[in-house]
Each structure stands twice: as C-alpha cells, then as structure tokens.
Amino acid sequence: MEDFNWGFFLELLVSGVLIGLMYSLIALGFVLIYKSTDAINFAQGEFVMIAGIIVGASAASYGLPLWLAISLSVAFMVLFNVGLERTVLRPMIGRPIVAIIMATIGLAALLRGAGPFFFGAETRPLNLPIDDAPIIIGDHFIYLNPIHLLGAAAAVIFLLGFGWFFLKSRKGVAMRAVADSHQVSMAMGINVQRYFALAWVMAGVVAALGGVIWGSLLGVDTQLAIIGLKVFPVVILGGLDSIVGVIVGGIIVGVVENLAAGYLDPMVGGGTKDFTPYVLMILMLMFKPYGLFGKPIIERI
C-alpha cells in the first residue's frame, strides 16, 4: 500500500468541518422551532430554497443590489412564517405529532411548487462579493473555498448568538420556558403564542441566511431544498433540542460524508455522500435515540 496521503485527508477533514458548520446553520432553524413549539418542520430545506430563490431572482433577474435582495428575502420569510404560524400551525397545537409532520410535508410540497411557479425554474447564480479563488494553506496544499469559510463563520456567529439568546436574554429564557411546558408558562404570564410566532420568524431568518450561503455555493433553484434532507442526520446525532448538539452533529455529518466521498466513492461507484449520514443516523437511533446532547423524554400516561 502506498503512503497515506495526509494532505488529502486533511483537506477532506477541514472542508468537512466547514461544510458541517454550514449544515448546522440550516439545522439551527429546525431546532429553534422544535425547542420552543414542539413542532417538527420537514420544510426547513424548502424555506432555504424559497429564500435563496427570492434573493437570486431579485438580484440576478431584476438587478437589485445584493443587500436589498437579501433584506427582501428576509422580510418575506418573516411575513410568510408569521402567516404560516397563524393559519396552519396554531390550529394544530395539541394535535398528534404525526399530523404536524404531515402538515409540514405538505408545506414542503407547496413551496417546491411555488418557488419555480412564481420565480421561474432556471438555475440562477448568486454571487457574493468575495474572491472565490481557493485559499491554499501549508505545504500539503489544503485548498479552502472562501465561500465555505464565510459560511462556516456566519454559522458560528449565528450559533453563538442563539446560544447567548437562549441562555441569557429575557426572551430566550421565556422561550425555553415555553418549550418546557406550554401550560406552566401561560400561567406565569408568558404570551405563549407570541413566542411561537417568534420561533418561526427566527427559523425563517436563519433559513434566509442559509439560502444566501448555500445558494452562492450551489446556485439557486429547487435543488437547493435537498439541503433540508441533511438536517435530519444533524439533529438526530446532536440531539433535537440542543444548540451545542447542532454544531457537533453538523461537524460530524460534514466530516463523515466528505471522508466517505473521498475514500468510499472510488470503491463503490459514487453516491455514498448522500447515504453515509443516514447510516450513521440509524445507528444513533438504535443505540442512543435522543442524540449526543438531547434531553431524554420520560413518558407518563
């Protein structure tokens, strides 16, 4: 066997970590909603897609400046999610979890149709004003994509921000109380429904940011929604209601799929990238279903 190529390994590892952090950003929206409203959002990837499409359409096709396009997309996501919470999710509070899962699956289908229906189905570029020449580090020639770096940095900032928000700020504490028990927090004078809306709004904003970053990496079209499928391994590995878990889970998924793509793909003929995170997730579900940092649920009648 030839010498182990450390440079190749390191490159896979580092870019895996960066991509993993970008997954964490998407998964964060999911966790935010689950943490405070107990609702499961299967449409997180579609949120990302629709936000990306709005940025792409307004910047590339209507020639708006980037900052305006991004604010437009964020504003849309906020309004859309407030409306969504009002019309669909609020009436479903207290219904079985399967019903909420199905509602968001329906929402996902709707958004996947609505995105290209209103904005056109073509793939648009989404160019961030940064130099996309690869950055080369060290004598092993590790190539880093600057967009990966930017995405990972944005993810870390957002994750830290939300960590602070939940631990220290008054609203964040209220939100954790809501997550713990709707009834008790109502009795303590917390406006539960407003916090539900706030959670969806925050998830929408995070999705918009994710849409910009992933859109600049992959181009903007309906395929962007596939990112949403990475959310599940990330949150299951990390634990559904933990922000630390999201970071760790994201990094694990990013590294594992990058290594699989680097080492296993040549052996079995491709496709392992989409598949290994799910195998990992199944193992996790069998042995430790609440994830690395999740809170076990004790059930009573």
Binding site: A99, M102, A103, L110, G113, A114, F117
Partner: peptide
C-alpha cells in the same frame, strides 16, 4: 413552451395546499 413545467409545479402547490387544508380543517 413551459406549460408542462407549470402544470407539474401547479400540481405540487395544489397537492401541498390540500394536505395542509385537510389537516387543519377536516382531519
């Protein structure tokens, strides 16, 4: 030219909306 595409998209929209409608209004 894009009619076939639009039909598929329209189907997805209606499909998703119907799922949500039935879940909220007539479970």
């Amino acid at each position: 030219v894009i009619l076939a595409q639009v039909t598929a998209q329209f189907r997805l929209i209606l499909f998703g909306a119907l799922i949500m409608f039935f879940l909220v209004v007539e479970p």
